[in-house]
Design a protein around this nucleic acid. Structure first.
Lengths: 347, 347
DNA sequence: GGCATGAGAGTAACCGGTTACAGTTGCAAA
DNA sequence: TTTGCAACTGTAACCGGTTACTCTCATGCC
């Protein structure tokens, strides 16, 4: 691979001049510049970004650290981030915490010297721990993490209000016994959603300790909750699952037991994953614009990198909106598919 | 941020010794080594990967260049890649060609000096062009691209055989008039699938020029094809869409027109996206293990990087398997949901 | 005691760019 | 002709590590 020295030699100039010609500095003129550019073409020279970023002290790359890389949720987040990053000529370096705090620390450490800033989504890492991992010198925006205690900018979803609103809606539809399927115990989103549910039940329905079944956000755990519900003859006329995946598993299980949704029992989820509107009946859920979560965070990070220091610990909170569909006897007929915006698609 | 010199000064040794202590070289002893490690801890030193990769001439990063970052397909590919990459301590740098060949070239060029190898998926770039963009010195594995003309290792899906098999299956189920919804004209996968369909129709059903409707892999284009089918009164008792997304759009449109699937018309897709088995009736499709596409490619790349040069232009071809479900009157009842392996899930 | 041996540590070159600073050149003004 | 200035171009230091090579010094052996 050709280096800048090769180009300089070929063009008969010094490396400094070659560098300047390539980077469009004002002080390199016609003939000289042409010679350099000709050499570049001839040798097929491409600047070595690694070396360049070492002197420039900027990498044009942002690190994205997610708990996992599976599923539509992350795919959407990454898409949102990339949308904004690409516009600014930024690259994305992916990190994966694979569940363990140790891996999380390693992933963050590995980013040093590779990125200009960090986007981190640590749903099950405690704030104290997290702040120990993070490098205060590296601009960082937290994804889906309400940084009350940390002095970091963040973008979060108002899980509490969303859950409250959904529970309220179920009650308004006439449900008397709403059961909640919770998410992982250590997960912040899950806890906030559960709080929203409980508060709505106590405040609106005056039920002190509403029924809560355990779950872990997986489809299978939703199905398991369904079995508990049916076999345990838990009295319920509506179920609010802490996410859509579990709602999907639940519905399949209910159908297998001969229960009709929403006839015998209403079901609601959270997130509005693409699958939700394709179910039959389609799934009522709280819509979170997942890609906006990513793009908003990326925009904040860019602003910080540009030096427009936003107030420390400034945060953006996205409010989810309720989408009433078939599983709660929504306004639309169960076979109707609401039109989704068409996005770039592939095989 | 502390540098190696800071650590060396703090520990009272030279940078060379500090570097060796940190990297566990044999020739640094107890007390000296301890002093260095203590300094590391005290200063919170993390090696600067950028600088390190400059001298080491390796970055522990692979570049992944995809046509787009949307949807389950890419999410699954990335997951497959990450699975293998993570095991080997490799990082993923994402590049996006955003549709244009120019962007593709730019994305590839931007990788120089940042990565040790490249995973590229160029579904709509011509081989001649592609080889011009690629750096022959940078190990590269092609994703989902049969590199007949290029001397590059690749992992591909046997789209032709898959489409042939699906068409054959529809005919075996008694279909007489199978219509194909094609994918984008310039897309290789789409073309191969169309060829498979056409060949099966001519060889098995003896139909010279079977009906083909245009599409672009998007859900909306599937719906559009559905409208054409219904309004144009195209005689058809089965539709084979070039991918699942279009099948989904098609089915919604057929349902809206009061046609029953599979009663009036059978439907089949390609890819087996997670959504497929959740539809009602569930969608028959050709299952491509998308994550295996990614993990296989990553494993090949790792082998090349380790110097185990696999034969040039060696390729792996993954054969899709037919999954017969509800939309072709498959063996399973339409409400049954086949068990999917539970993977890490989240909100 | 003298010398070979080798472990441990230091010096400095290098990876491939960028850029501060210095040096050269040409031309107009004095 | 000399000087001043502008406009280029070159030299070399530097970014933050790694490592070949060199040097020192303690040890073992004759």
């Amino acid at each position: 691979m050709a280096t800048l020295r090769d180009v300089a030699r070929e063009a008969g100039v010094s490396v400094a001049t070659a560098s300047r010609a390539i980077n469009d500095h004002s002080n390199v003129t016609g003939p000289t510049k042409d010679a350099v550019l000709a050499a570049v073409k001839k040798l097929n020279f491409v600047p070595h970004s690694g070396a360049r970023s070492l002197t420039r002290r900027k990498t044009d790359t942002v690190g994205v650290i997610l708990p996992d890389l599976f599923g539509e949720f992350f795919s959407e987040i990454i898409r949102g981030i990339d949308l904004v990053a690409h516009e600014s000529g930024m690259h994305l370096l992916l990190g994966n915490m694979h569940g363990s705090p140790h891996e999380t620390a390693a992933a963050i450490a590995a980013m040093r010297g590779r990125v200009d800033g960090l986007l981190v989504m640590p749903p099950d890492v405690k704030p104290e721990l997290l702040s120990g991992y993070l490098d205060p010198a590296l601009p960082t925006v937290l994804l889906n993490y309400d940084a009350d205690s940390l002095d970091l900018p963040f973008v979060a979803v108002d899980n509490y209000r969303g859950a409250y609103a959904m529970t309220e809606a179920l009650l308004a539809r006439g449900a008397k016994q709403v059961v909640h399927i919770a998410g992982p115990r250590h997960n912040r989103d899950a806890r906030d959603r559960q709080r929203g549910f409980v508060d709505a039940m106590t405040k609106i329905a005056k039920i002190k300790s509403p029924a809560i079944l355990p779950g872990d956000f997986s489809e299978e755990s939703g199905a398991q909750a369904g079995r508990l519900l049916v076999q345990g003859r838990l009295p319920a006329d509506a179920v609010f699952a802490a996410n859509d995946q579990m709602a999907v598993g639940l519905i399949a299980e209910l159908a297998a037991s001969g229960l009709s949704v929403p006839g015998d029992i209403m079901v609601a989820g959270f997130d509005d994953i693409p699958l939700a509107r394709h179910l039959n009946p389609s799934l009522s859920t709280m819509q979170v614009n997942i890609d906006r979560l990513g793009s908003t965070a990326m925009m904040m990070l860019l602003r910080i990198l540009r030096g427009e220091s936003l107030a420390a610990a400034s945060g953006t909170i996205l409010t989810p909106t309720l989408v009433a569909r078939g599983t709660t006897g929504g306004a639309l007929g169960s076979t109707t598919v609401d039109k989704a915006p068409v996005r770039g698609a592939r095989a």
